[in-house]
Design a protein around this nucleic acid. Structure first.
Lengths: 212, 212, 212, 212
DNA sequence: GATGAATGAGCGTTCATTCAT
DNA sequence: AATGAATGAACGCTCATTCAT
């Protein structure tokens, strides 16, 4: 990767990834044509193939790189957090801020999964599963400690990720809220959502007794 | 008569919608070809045009019909509910069960919005806005009553809808959980998530004071 | 309109011919679709086939009927004319006024010939040949009498017909000129054009002697 | 290398224009399919689009280039001609010989005008108007000099052009007549047609008095 | 590394025509 | 006579991809 002198190769590749990211985000993978992409980059369509192997591989690389980053950075964000509450709070903060800074990758990784060929699809889904398991483990630990209470661990995991990920379909930089405010708003919903219902008002409706 | 395959009259239109729904759900609007659709229905590609005007209009009709149903049925579900808590619980139950029975429409209405032409797009976004406002009003009322507490009304609205809608990317009929269990799991997360943090365990971390 | 008992059959057929004439004139035979035609008439495309056999036959009928009329009416116009000059003048007057009143048929019969199937094409070309021969005979008679002088009989025949027929690509009813003025303008050009060059000014360049 | 059929580079574009010209001449613009054209050129239909933007633009280019050539070459043909008679004779000779050598372009430029989109249509009609004005000016000058006499300038202009242009619907290279003979035949008709009727026989019928 | 011209498949759509009702 | 739904072929055009230069 780190080739520096002589050629603009790396620059072109970077331009392709960047433009590809934007175009897929805006129009979807199927709807983005390599002609559009080439035009955006300022080269002829055929020249793309000096940098990519196939359109499919470009998508796959974009998604896979994103998911790897996501996982690696999550690791870092959780490294020194000990209690489930601390870890959940860190998870939320990390997830939200990552989604704010890389919302295109995040969006694509969710919406264009179905355009991946089986092999690539499975690889990505496996990585996504690892990410989800991180959250599931935090929730599970909190349940054991009695600090969290969810009706179903898996549902809660999916629901919390969906809740947090929803961000990238409405967030625009420079909007009404600061990053911190947005994080705080999500922290409240998630943390509060998994807490035991204890003395909180409005609880105790009978339907809750029927859970499987 | 020879050919009764391919069916006639109103049936064909229904078959087109049904097959279209499934194919768009599975492959996306851009990736579904009218040849596929016609084959699924059992007619020639050109014959589709006895029933639809354009591919775009088929998508638009599917989405618009769904959103109208969604709004109408929500109205019904909320009709006799009085308190914000009751209403929020009803909203969650309705949303989840609607999404379980019509997850394809729901999924498409979210993921294929960008494939709508501007005119259609705006119409659908307006209807979606009306739906979101229903939830926002419930939350707002609950805040006034002191039974709910969210950091930011808009963020909470989007987040809750995202949380609930996430369901349709993992739910499969006949899975591990009953409908009631799934509803209960979501109710707990949402209701608990918007409650004032009062005496609940694990709360009271200092960061909460800094929100905008 | 004048539909009397039982069926509107004749009316519909007439409407089809009329609309067909207009549409072919405006867009050309190839560019006119039977869907357009049906819409114009106010019926469904399939219903056209209760009145016509094929699109091709509609064209052929329109052209053939026109050419037959043209020939028949020419006969009449020439009936009592004796001298070549009288007959040529009558030919011009007839041709021009026919083209003014039925310019669509005339235009189509010239421009859509190539869209006729071989069988129909040959039939029409034969009739057109008969029409041209009428003019050729007049010119030929005039040459024998010494009142006309053309360099080549066939070229003159084609050229005069082209000259006269050109009318229907610019004539619009209600224009600057009266019908009589238009006829007079063409008569002058044609009559004068075939006259021996005698004492006329500007003539007599030597090249004229060398023609085959 | 396998395929040198289908040719390369600038040659392909030339082959497309040439084949397009012939096919449009023979079947009409609407009736010519790009599949036919591609087959004629020896490439795949889609490959046409490496050379043209649209079918419409191909037509438009063919016509526009022809009309520009026509105007430019007319300019040259008239350059050193002084008197109206000389100029008219030159006009006829030029028009006829141009139409003999490029009859396909000429034919198309007349018959396929209606297939041009409004923008292109107007451009071409404007150029054609300039060409017509050349002839009108010659006639007008001749009238002032007293060497020409026409009943109506505009009618005469259109009629003469129609007369001359008619050539390209019957002319075939290698026919009965030499180029010179054909030119001479047209010169006689046109020159004689616009001459004052002076002593020529057959003149003086009463209808001539009614001109507007 | 880039270009331009090519491929072959496929796109959404329209067409003339047929025919049971 | 008219309809509505169907057929099968074809339309203009775009696509991802290849490759000699």
């Amino acid at each position: 990767m780190a080739r520096t002198i002589g050629s603009h190769g790396p620059t072109t590749m970077e331009a392709i990834r960047k433009a590809g990211l934007r175009l897929i985000f805006e129009h979807g993978y199927e709807a983005m044509s390599l002609r559009q992409l080439a035009a955006e980059v300022g080269i002829q369509p055929g020249s793309l193939y000096n940098h990519i192997n196939t359109k499919q591989e470009l998508l796959s690389d974009l998604i896979q790189d994103h998911i790897n980053d996501l996982l690696r950075e999550l690791e870092e964000a959780l490294r020194d957090k000990q209690t489930p509450v601390e870890r959940l709070r860190a998870f939320v903060a990390f997830h939200v801020s990552y989604h704010m800074t890389r919302k295109r990758e995040v969006f694509i990784a969710n919406s264009e999964l179905r355009s991946l060929e089986p092999r690539n699809y499975e690889a990505v889904v496996a990585l996504r599963g690892a990410y989800e398991r991180r959250l599931a483990d935090i929730l599970s630990d909190g349940m054991s400690d009695g600090v969290f209470d969810v009706v179903d661990l898996q549902v809660a995991t999916f629901a919390i990720i969906a809740l947090l990920t929803g961000l990238c379909s409405w967030y625009r930089p420079g909007g009404r809220l600061t990053k911190e405010a947005i994080i705080a708003a999500h922290e409240k919903l998630v943390l509060s959502g998994v807490m035991p219902q204890g003395a909180s008002p409005g609880g105790g409706h009978p339907g809750q007794g029927t859970r499987e």
